[in-house]
Design a protein around this nucleic acid. Structure first.
Lengths: 253, 253
DNA sequence: AAGTCGTGTTGCATTCCTTGCAACAGTCAT
DNA sequence: ATGACTGTTGCAAGGAATGCAACACGACTT
């Protein structure tokens, strides 16, 4: 749309391949050296481009600063909320969104079930970290040593007969979750309540949040709930895509 | 230098603060909405800007991709080499550059001493990980659990009486190194050889490489070598700055 | 339902900004 | 010294970006 800007921005991917000098940039842009010079200067003033000691140009530090600032200002909850609502409208059950912070897993959003049931969860409240599906998803993504360090530090309360009993079992469960890309809690916290969950990933592939659908088995059986898994995963993936700023199909055209 | 590009690039830091709609962007740029629209469109085509579901604009995924590709294409050794040579010319001793990879620490560059001595090191060769100054620097930067996991897995050969004896001592040494920002190896590998080293950091502050100066004490005493510390640190910092694309003083003007 | 505000979007004429050229200034090798 | 190579600057001409005004669309209010 804007020729000048278009040309200037085309320099960035070019430099991402590696440092280049003025002539190379001008050639690959198909413009005169002086034109390339002025574009590079403008990019340089904004810190997007850095001139190294051999006079060649590379991408500059500002780019990293921008990228970092962008992720920090991103609010998963804001982006995820409409998706959670849509999911709730499709299946009717309680939908949770949670994040991992300081050795705790916290609910940061919740859409209530449309069935007349209550669940003991509250936004801002730490979840039962050893059994909840969202906790498993978030912790499964940690590097192995951190995962292990955390697992041995935790208490393993026996909420029910199906609660995770100890660190060994927990680590095994996390490995499974990491492998399959989704998690469940089948009566591990409250005997009659089941959950299925899936991870939300950031642009670097790391898990930044986790969502789950919960329902008491007086409403649906565990098997029926598990049938929702594809839908849950698709929702989580949609959130991931939007969160990481990728438009589903447009990106590569 | 180029008004159009200048305006377009000014949008990026603006969006880094958080999502904004067309009107806000136009206002803060001091241009007509239609102008802002066309600039945003161009940025969008290049993927630097992403349009979220509520029509507001944010920074896009391409920015992250570019930043990542840029760091991958960066070669520490290439950037560091002239600095290593300069350091060698100033002090005359052997200078090493090393990186951490797969639970090993490898020398990736070396400038030979100008004194007639030999050192048993070779580019590409794993270093004595429990005693070398460069190893301490690289491992000290790991997250605590990984550091501990690695420390207990290592063997602690007694090269000399001053070699690190066990994991406990090693972890204590790493904590000290992490704290002070530099490291030494005083006869821990070979009785008569001392080293001082300092870390090279990337744009995110993490240690990406480590450099050291080594000399046998038949040439200089440990104290004399330690007197070089400020020089070594300054060199490492210079490499860090150049590697992370920050121009020393210009950046904040 | 009509009306109104608030968005984002498009065509178009004017004008200013970008462009390529050619000449210049360095640096390095021959 | 001389040549070839880089990066750099002034200038005129043309084209591209700009702001305007009008339009389209949806969300609210009345």
């Amino acid at each position: 749309m804007s020729q000048t800007v278009d040309r200037a921005l085309s320099i960035l991917p070019l430099l991402a391949e590696g440092p280049a000098d003025l002539g190379q940039v001008a050639d690959r842009l198909g413009v005169h050296k002086s034109t390339a010079l002025r574009l590079l200067r403008t990019l340089h003033e904004h810190g997007l481009v850095h001139r190294q000691s051999d006079q060649r140009y590379r991408l500059g530090a500002r780019l990293f600063a921008l990228a970092q600032q962008a992720v920090e200002s991103l609010d998963v909850r804001e982006i995820a909320h409409p998706h959670l609502v849509a999911l709730n409208e499709k299946c009717g059950h309680t939908v949770h969104l949670a994040v991992h912070e300081e050795n705790e897993v916290l609910y940061i959003d919740k859409v209530e079930s449309r069935y007349p049931v209550r669940m003991y969860s509250r936004i801002g409240k730490p979840v039962a970290i050893t059994v909840a599906a969202v906790a498993k998803l978030l912790l499964a993504d940690l590097p192995e040593p951190e995962r292990r360090a955390l697992a041995v530090k935790l208490d393993y309360p026996r909420y029910t007969a199906r609660s995770t009993p100890d660190a060994t079992a927990f680590l095994a469960e996390l490995a499974k979750v990491r492998e399959q890309g989704w998690a469940t809690d089948l009566g591990g916290h409250e005997e009659s309540i089941n959950c299925v969950g899936a991870p939300v990933r950031g642009v670097d592939g790391r898990v930044v949040a986790a969502m789950s659908v919960s329902a008491p088995n007086v409403v649906v059986t565990a098997d029926e709930l598990l049938a929702l898994l594809p839908l849950v995963r698709r929702t989580a993936d949609a959130i991931s895509r939007e969160y990481s700023g990728q438009t589903p199909a447009k990106e590569t055209e």
